[in-house]
């Protein structure tokens, strides 16, 4: 028996919004430690890794490890039927071929359940090595989203240059060129407004705007985003989900032809 409950459907809706543009389907691996999903996007350019800890749920029970392959478009249709302040419970029997989403209104007067067929997905899992990154940047998630959106107008690629003074995002194309420089902040009142750079070595890397913009769909989940970069290895864009876990996106830098 598997049962996971969140007192508020908003978080689950936001999580789905953060992955459904990149992935058509995904396998949710459930164990007593929580729920994990790892999947490459449809074109195998980026990787999404979602971790939701069991202790972050309002109720969590998983008697036996369970892998549930879900069509994320179908899941989105179902979650649209939940009000933001509904309690959502995900339920499945062991070895079941369906999963049930139950939504309960705050006053308990409306209870709805939606059963969805599970899919057998033959997805390969990638082993992600622990890496010490040359540069780790933490910045407001809204600011990162804004920069990715703005620079995508000028080029398919954005160059991220990180030194201890700051981080610079650049794009150039037919229209001209754009540069956005952010300095590390000191003594900001609010932690979520801080820009913090931990640098071992400076890096200059080029990434596809299209994927960075897809990652920023996770912005509503977190005030801050963390970018981890080293030469010649994939960038990690991480959004923490308060008290529940995190979503990480991996994207390899572009290389010279």
């Amino acid at each position: 028996m598997f049962e996971a409950r969140l007192n508020n459907a908003t978080t689950l809706k936001k999580i789905l919004d953060a992955i459904k543009d990149l992935l058509n389907e995904g396998t949710f691996d459930c164990s007593d430690s929580g729920i994990q999903l790892q999947a490459m996007d449809n074109s195998h350019v980026s990787l999404v890794s979602l971790t939701l800890r069991s202790d972050g749920f309002d109720k969590f029970r998983c008697d036996r490890n369970l892998s549930m392959g879900m069509n994320l478009g179908s899941m989105a249709k179902i979650l649209k039927c939940a009000n933001n302040d509904d309690t959502v419970t995900i339920k499945a029997q062991d070895n079941a071929d369906t999963v049930t989403f139950m939504f309960e209104s705050q006053n308990q007067e409306k209870v709805s359940d939606y059963e969805m067929k599970l899919m057998n997905l033959d997805q390969e899992h990638l082993g992600i090595p622990e890496t010490d990154y040359s540069c780790v940047v933490r910045m407001p998630a809204m600011e990162f989203a804004r920069i990715c959106r703005d620079l995508a107008q000028f080029s398919e690629s954005v160059v991220i240059c990180c030194t201890k003074e700051g981080v610079k995002f650049s794009a150039s194309g037919d229209v001209g060129s754009a540069n956005v420089k952010l300095a590390q902040t000191f003594n900001v009142d609010k932690e979520e407004e801080a820009i913090v750079i931990e640098m071992q070595e400076p890096v200059v890397l080029t990434f596809a705007c299209r994927y960075l913009n897809a990652f920023t769909k996770a912005t509503p989940l977190s005030n801050q985003v963390q970018l981890s970069m080293s030469a010649d290895v994939p960038l990690v864009v991480e959004y923490r989900i308060a008290e529940l876990g995190h979503i990480r996106y991996y994207l390899a830098p572009k290389i010279e032809d």
């Binding site: 082993g127 991996y250 572009k254 290389i255 010279e256």
Partner: peptide
């Protein structure tokens, strides 16, 4: 510039 696949950076488990 070329965009490598993410799979080429991580090992298949």
């Amino acid at each position: 510039m070329a965009q490598p696949s993410i799979a080429s950076y991580f090992n298949t488990r």
